[in-house]
Design a protein around this nucleic acid. Sequence first.
DNA 1: CCTATATTTCGAAACATGTCGAATTATGAA
DNA 2: TTCATAATTCGACATGTTTCGAAATATAGG
Lengths: 119, 119
Amino acid sequence: MSNYETMSLEHYANLLRALSNPHRLQVFQLLSGCCEAGTPCRSDQVLSRCVGDLDQQLEIASSTLSHHLRELHHAGLIDMQRRGKQIFCSVNPDAQSQLRQVLDTISPLNTRPEVTHDR
Amino acid sequence: MSNYETMSLEHYANLLRALSNPHRLQVFQLLSGCCEAGTPCRSDQVLSRCVGDLDQQLEIASSTLSHHLRELHHAGLIDMQRRGKQIFCSVNPDAQSQLRQVLDTISPLNTRPEVTHDR
DNA sequence: CCTATATTTCGAAACATGTCGAATTATGAA
DNA sequence: TTCATAATTCGACATGTTTCGAAATATAGG
């Protein structure tokens, strides 16, 4: 409503809110194709999974998963697209870059003590 | 409780939860000394502010601010230290790096902006 | 049309959150 | 000790979240 800063403050808080639930965070991680600690990240393709696929990994009622997917979708974090009987979910890449922006607001990169040297 | 992944999943979700409220996010930003978009970031020093100082910027009852500060503190995101009548808050740098870790889990750096047209 | 499968919507219960003002505690100073 | 200032705790209230199972909707295939 008021100014730009307030807008983005609320907007950013909203993004974080959508990821502040363990189940939603897990879904988003799965869709990001990532990345156990230490494991090489291979997200060179857009991942998408149907709802039932996600359902199998989450040990919650499918109605509950559906609710969480709606939250992620409303926050603009994921896209959902029907293909036949199934609905496929994928990360919205725009949202990913917004997430990086919030973090820059909060955890500046120039905190790094040393600069890496390329050869 | 269960395994490592679940633990950190919950832990990360907790960090995000603590920042998912606009007022708490704003406080954390103020303490990070950051960084309007486009402005060069000058957080080469640890910022700390007393509670009353923060109170002036937030248009909420001081009891409400106190509640939010407790949340941030319990999540391990900020440190609080009494100095005379006042209590000074500062960002916990360890938490900042944990935040960066969550983000790497969610928004991998090796995401290619352009599609590779390989054969 | 009928049926099986995939997913969402609904209704309800239990629990958590954000907010305030009033009362309380902690500290330093007169 | 008494007072003023800084901050927290308490009690209350309204609102939001998480979860489930049951019912509803959508789709593809006989």
